[in-house]
Amino acid sequence: MASIDLDKMLAKIKSTQWALSDIDWDAPGAELITEEQWPKLKDFMADLMWIEHVGARAFAAMAKKAPTDTLREIYTYFHAEEQRHANAEMALMKRWGMLEGDEIPEPNINLRLVIEWLDRYSDEMPVYVLGTVVPMLEIALDGALCTFLLETVKDPVCHQAFEKINDDESRHLGVGFSVMEMQGRGKTFIGATKMLAPLLDPRLMLGIASYVPLLNKMRDNIITMGLPEERLYAAMAKFEKIGGRTEDGRRNPWYQVIRQHAKFVVNRNNRAYHVPVDGMVKLTGLIPRRALPAVPSWVKELTYQPTA
């Protein structure tokens, strides 16, 4: 996979749009969800939908920061596409009777912290920080979660929706890895020390502090649902392989940081990492809801209704 032509990619993105109304959400097949599956699937879908939404917000931040017009426009589309994924996943939940009334599923506390952080600080983060974290999350989503979901769920409408979602995701990954390589290209981009400098920024530390327990919590949720741990390893290996396929990619210091961290997350035997982080999950679980500010208004844009 050579570096892609971003202008062509943008044209391709524009010409391959889809809408929720392209799918018949009332088509038969909902009954294929087994009673045993239902409660776990409900939690899984809620998490998935929220990651999409959080990913959307990250792209929104990148759309302000990207170095070229084309990339800014691509990220503007990706922002909307991730929102579309979240909307479509909500529509599936609605179909499966998983939405209480018309309510958006409540985000768990760790998600709330991440949302809070994204809302406050993501616009101020250098684009290469999010530019590396996002492909990592996407590959985990694409390679592990979605594949697993499709193996477990027999409902054809779910397959139809994810076929479209996955097409989008393959473009997100294509751009994501290309950009990571651009960032590793020393001459055009900034030196490694400068790129890592934000690590010392307290705002980013806050971000890490909210993101790290989220990953652990999600990993646990997924595993309860029956996802084999190997899938996560495989996804991380894929990130490592594609991200590091070229010299430029390997030279990107953020690639090195994220890669290392991803390894920690999936390896549950790494006690030095997991004991404190699991402690954080427990701790954050104690934060009373009241202590959190109201959800930002971008969260209220989610909808499962194909028309408005």
Binding site: K14, Q17, W18, A19, L20, S21, T76, Y77, A80, E81, Q83, R84, N87, A88, E301, T303, Q305, P306, T307, A308
Partner: peptide, 21 residues
């Protein structure tokens, strides 16, 4: 602020997948 994907019979489809009628 979602980009417009296309116009349809009843309105405007934006990239977040919704048709605004």
């Amino acid at each position: 602020t979602w980009p417009i994907a296309r116009l349809s019979e009843k309105g405007i489809r934006t990239v977040e997948g919704i048709e605004h009628q």
